[in-house]
Amino acid sequence: MYPAPFLYHRPSGLHQALELLSRHKTDGVILAGGQSLVPRMNLRQETPKNVVDLNRIADLSTLAVVDDVLEIGAMVRHQSLCWDAEVSGLSLPSGFAQLLGRMAGAIGNLPIRLRGTIGGSLANASPKAQWALLSLLLDADIVIENAGGARCERYAEFLNRDGRTTLKPGDMITRVKIKVPSAHWRYGFAQLAPQQNRPTSAFALAAVTLQDACVRDCRIAVGACTPVPCRLQALEDWLSGRPASVDGGNDLADVAKAAVRQQAFDLEPYLEHLAAVAITRAVAQALGH
């Protein structure tokens, strides 16, 4: 289990990195945290001739709020978002900051989180990636650069329904931009795995605002059990306007299941059940049950 030989490049700046990627369009890969890429290289499922290591590009590791938009550099490690010290200076609404920490903390395990990056995760587009779920729900913009320039894509457009991204050879995700939600939003996140600390079977993320004890705005997404994370429009519609005390029991679960079914992923009954459980938990949490 040894990787095939490759040439190693360690650019110190973004420009140099993009140049390298442009030069090695057909046989180059980006090495970010390496927690997914290196296992694949070790198994020779991936045998790049050129590896461009982004770990020395300081610009890619910044975390900032600019004009009410949270900008997360592609090389920000998952664990950074769990650490108060790194997040508290951003003056994010506390519910939102907590959500970031909870979702980051649900990734893999500590050594993996300390190394793995948000940009790498988004580029991999694994259906089990927590950041994909968050990016979809909060309409994140993905900033993609290459030697020719930069572009910005809404996450829903960035990821196709078949699980492929719009990334082309030479492209690099450099930042994720999330409009900081108002402090009114409340969140719920549930992740299910056969055992704790195991690959996720299903997860769901819900965000709501309330008015007069009723649901006003509502966004719900489910993933891991589906080929790509998806918003559940039917469930969002159903929930909007209902009292926040809405029975978190059978009704919600049934509607959740129906909403999942409507996405036509043709899930086996067990996964459909898990998806419903995750959604129900996430919604109940967001509603403060």
Binding site: V38, D53, P111, I112, L114
Partner: peptide
């Protein structure tokens, strides 16, 4: 100062 998987880090990265 932090625990890292040595098998997922190329030695060259540890410079």
């Amino acid at each position: 100062g932090v625990p890292i998987r040595g098998c997922l880090l190329f030695a060259v990265q540890a410079d």
